[in-house]
Every structure is written in structure tokens, then in C-alpha cells.
């Protein structure tokens, strides 16, 4: 186990270093100078040079890379070029929107997928199953930004039940905050719910074929009882894996949805930072996202390995 751990930690560190190098290189070769962007068309060359010095952009690339990395290691994400505020603070502000949004979307996903998946599995091959499966196909096929557009048209403009977008801030009250997130969460959740329903269904169907379910059936449990008592619980393992994947997607993948609903989330922060060449923000935020996914994977691997020693030699 110790050897396995050392190996895994080494590969974790290696992954992080490679990731940081990739991110830094890509961001560095993006054409466009942050200082020139900030000062616009009438700026004189000496003014741009002065700003570059002020921002530390005149230092050699290698030196800036190590400054960035050593800052990251110490928990210092740097200071945004354009906003002139610490990146950590900006990220914290944006996570306060993106995290609840992702959680809400996930809750909706699960709330739809679990009942739908179980229903479909228990009515396998019948009209109900076909209906659910048809709906999931549609759910996967609908582009979520288009669906979001339609939601806004109906619920914000025609019916005026909710506001068209924006985020009042949690200071305005938890209820107001949640109301602002409900449409975007639905738009984000729909395709995910469709995917999860299918996973849930097929995972349940696999379970129903397993011996222990047959045994349970043989012991006189009704199909329904067998499903609920044994199959659902065991089917959760692949389902949870998918949920984990979906969550990291929801956290960073909402750029387009955040744009449609003008939410101040992580995705839009990155989008804005890229277009204003706020390189330090792009680097730090992307690194943070990548590191969190790698970290979660690492934790999952360790958990699996702890439970099942066979997995320690990678299969």
C-alpha cells in the first residue's frame, strides 16, 4: 500500500506540473498584450512600457513561471492585471455563484434521473420505458444554450415568473439567490439528467440479472421489492461515478449558460479574462479547476484502492 501510495502521489505531482506547464505555455503564446489592451488605441508606446513594468510583464518568461508557481504553492494566486484585485478573492466571489448553481443543477439532475431511471428499469420494454428512453434521447440531443434561450423566452419574458438573468448576490436573501439560479440550473440539468437516467436504467438492469437478485426473487421477494431492497443500492456505484464526472463538468462547463443568463460565475470569469488577456487570472483559475479534478480523481482512486486491494495493480 505504501509503495502504491508513493507511486500515486508521484504521478499526481507529475500531472500537476505538466498541467501547469501546459497552461502557462498556452496562455503565454496567445497573441495580445494585456497592457496594450488596457490602454487602448491612443496609448503611447512609453505608456504601455510603463504599465508592463508595473504589472511585472517585462520580466523573463521563465522567471514569471516560477514566480507564479511558487505563489500557487503558497496559496497566492496573484493579482488580476485588469481588476487589480487578488485572484483568490475573485475566484471566491465566483464560486459563490458557480458552486450553488452546480449543486442545484445536480439536485435537479438526480431528482429527475433517479425516479425516471428506476421507473424505466422496472417497466423494461413496456410503453413507459420506451417513453422515458425516447425523452432521454431528446434530452441529450437538445443543445443546452438553445434550451436556455427558450426557457428565458417563456418564463422570463412571456410569463414573467422569474427574472431573465443576473444574480442579486446572496446578501439579497437566499430565496432571491436561488430564484435567480433556477432557470440556468434547469437548462444545465436537462442533458445531464437524460444521461444519468440512461446510466441508472442500464445499471439497474445489469443488477437485476445478477445472482443475488435472482436469489432474492427466489426467496419470494416481489420484483419491486427486490429492485428497491437490493438493486438500487448496488446500482448506485456506477451512478455515483457518473455524478462525480458531471459535477466537475457542471462547475466549469457552464460558460455558455452563464453567458445566456449573465451570471457572474467561474466560466464567465475565465471567458472575460481570456478576452482581456488577464493572463494571471486565466492561468490561476484554469490551474485551480484542473487541480481540483485531478485531486478528486486521486481521492477516488485511493478510496477504491483502500476498498479493493486488487485495484492497486492498475487494471
Amino acid at each position: 500500500m505504501i509503495r502504491y501510495m508513493i507511486g500515486r502521489v508521484t504521478s499526481l505531482c507529475l500531472s500537476l506540473v505538466v498541467a501547469s506547464l501546459v497552461i502557462f505555455t498556452v496562455v503565454e503564446i496567445v497573441p495580445g498584450d494585456p497592457a496594450a489592451y488596457m490602454l487602448g488605441v491612443n496609448a503611447r508606446p512609453d505608456t504601455i512600457a510603463a504599465l508592463r513594468t508595473e504589472l511585472g510583464l517585462d520580466l523573463p518568461t521563465v522567471q514569471r513561471y516560477f514566480a507564479w508557481i511558487s505563489g500557487l504553492v503558497q496559496g497566492d494566486f496573484g493579482i488580476s492585471y485588469t481588476y487589480r484585485t487578488p485572484v483568490a478573492q475573485m475566484v471566491a466571489d465566483r464560486i459563490a455563484v458557480s458552486l450553488p448553481l452546480a449543486l442545484l443543477a445536480l439536485a435537479i439532475t438526480v431528482a429527475i434521473a433517479f425516479p425516471a431511471g428506476i421507473y424505466a428499469a422496472s417497466h423494461r420494454g413496456r410503453a413507459g420505458d420506451l417513453g422515458v428512453m425516447g425523452a432521454t434521447q431528446l434530452g441529450i440531443a437538445v443543445p443546452n444554450f438553445w434550451f436556455a434561450m427558450i426557457l428565458v423566452l417563456i418564463f422570463a419574458i412571456k410569463l414573467r415568473w422569474v427574472s431573465a438573468g443576473g444574480f442579486p448576490g446572496w446578501n439579497a436573501g437566499v430565496l432571491k439567490g436561488l430564484t435567480a439560479l433556477i432557470l440556468p440550473a434547469i437548462a444545465l440539468a436537462l442533458p445531464q439528467a437524460a444521461i444519468l437516467t440512461r446510466v441508472m436504467r442500464s445499471s439497474l438492469l445489469d443488477m437485476l440479472n445478477e445472482d443475488f437478485i435472482r436469489t432474492a426473487r427466489a426467496k419470494g421477494l416481489s420484483k419491486r421489492q427486490a429492485l428497491w431492497r437490493h438493486a438500487v443500492r448496488n446500482a448506485l456505484i456506477p451512478v455515483l461515478t457518473i455524478i462525480g464526472l458531471q459535477f466537475s463538468f457542471l462547475l466549469a462547463g457552464g460558460i455558455v449558460i452563464e453567458q445566456v443568463f449573465f451570471l457572474p460565475g467561474m466560466g464567465r470569469l475565465i471567458f472575460q479574462a481570456i478576452s482581456s488577456r488577464d493572463l494571471i487570472v486565466v492561468e490561476s483559475v484554469v490551474m485551480l479547476l484542473v487541480a481540483s479534478v485531478i485531486g478528486v480523481n486521486f481521492a477516488v482512486d485511493l478510496a477504491y484502492a483502500a476498498v479493493d486491494p486488487r485495484l492497486r495493480t492498475r487494471s
Partner: peptide, 16 residues
């Protein structure tokens, strides 16, 4: 700050 034109239209129409 509302950068998306559709969102701008929606926000205005919804009187946000």
C-alpha cells in the same frame, strides 16, 4: 453588466 444581446433584451422586457 449584461453582455449578451438576448439577455439584454430579456432583462429589459422583464423590467429587471
Amino acid at each position: 453588466f449584461i453582455s449578451d444581446p438576448t439577455a439584454a433584451f430579456a432583462a429589459m422586457m422583464a423590467e429587471d
